[in-house]
Simulated assay, not measured.
Amino acid sequence: MHPELKNIETIELKVSNPPRRHFTRQRRQLSAGARRQLANSASLHLFKLQQRLPPRARIGLYYDGFAELPTQPLLDWCQRLGYVPYLPVVGSLGNDDKRLRFVPIYHAKLLNIPTRIHSLGMKQNHHRRLLWARELDVIICPLTAVDKNGNRMGMGGGFYDTTLAKSYQSGAKKPLKIGWCYDFQVIEQLERQPWDVPLDGLITPSGLRWF
């Protein structure tokens, strides 16, 4: 366990839908150095995901703008193995449409990508070559918390559940839905809503698990 994690308060198991602010506070207690170290530890488990991917796989990533587990190691991994990374774009079809589309990444560092701040606070980049989620092989999903059955509590906007609902309901094999988070974001059980789309797998600093 990273030494800084010892000071983070824990929550009791079998809690349904704890408040998002609980996890936000935990994330922000970590220094930037600790976040990077934990992300590097998580990236050591990516080889287990490679076994399920085709050559030149298309991978949806996201900016870690709210003290989440940093996603730069995911971009490094994509570039090292020849995978094609993408970032989500909100509102490309109008502000009332919650379906995400994805823009290719042409930079080696997320910090170097030209962005603007969406009204909801997240960074995003725009480009003419936008893909639908169904055209990706994997989507790395941001999350607030996840339970041991793969049920995911999102960031509150409902964008990923809306984006992935059709492929999930149809039983499509792709995109694979993979969570990427700290170990303290994994709890025993979350209350699942009818519109929730569960994860296929989860990567944390302690390992990769499939659901």
Rank of each mutant, 00 (worst) to 15 (best):
S43D: 06
P88S: 07
F66D: 13
Q51S: 14
P54H: 07
Q79S: 00
L111Q: 11
L100V: 08
V89C: 07
L53Q: 10
L38F: 02
G33K: 06
G60W: 11
Y83V: 00
A34D: 02
Q72D: 10
H45C: 02
N95Y: 03
A32E: 13
L100Q: 10
A39Q: 04
V90Q: 03
H45G: 01
L44M: 07
Q51I: 08
P73D: 04
R80S: 03
H118E: 12
R99H: 14
R80L: 06
L111I: 01
L49S: 08
G82Q: 06
D64E: 07
T115M: 02
P114Y: 06
S31K: 05
R52E: 15
R56G: 04
S41M: 13
L111W: 01
Q79Y: 02
N112R: 08
R101L: 08
Y86I: 00
I59D: 02
A57L: 03
A57G: 07
I113T: 01
I105M: 09
I59W: 02
L49T: 05
A108S: 15
L93P: 00
Q50T: 15
L69W: 11
L110I: 02
G82L: 07
A108C: 05
L93H: 04
N40D: 07
F66K: 09
L44E: 08
W77G: 06
F66Q: 11
K109N: 13
Q79A: 00
S92H: 13
P70A: 04
A34R: 00
N95A: 14
D97L: 09
R116E: 13
G91F: 13
D97Y: 07
Y106F: 07
G91M: 12
Q72F: 10
E68F: 02
G82P: 05
A39C: 03
P55A: 14
R58D: 07
R99S: 10
L111Y: 01
L87N: 09
P114A: 05
A34F: 01
R101F: 02
Q72M: 05
Y106A: 10
R35L: 06
D96W: 09
L49G: 08
L110T: 03
H45T: 00
D97V: 15
R99E: 13
A32Q: 13
P85N: 05
S41T: 12
L111A: 15
W77S: 04
G91V: 14
I105A: 04
A108D: 15
G94T: 01
T115W: 01
K98R: 09
K48P: 00
D76V: 11
A67G: 02
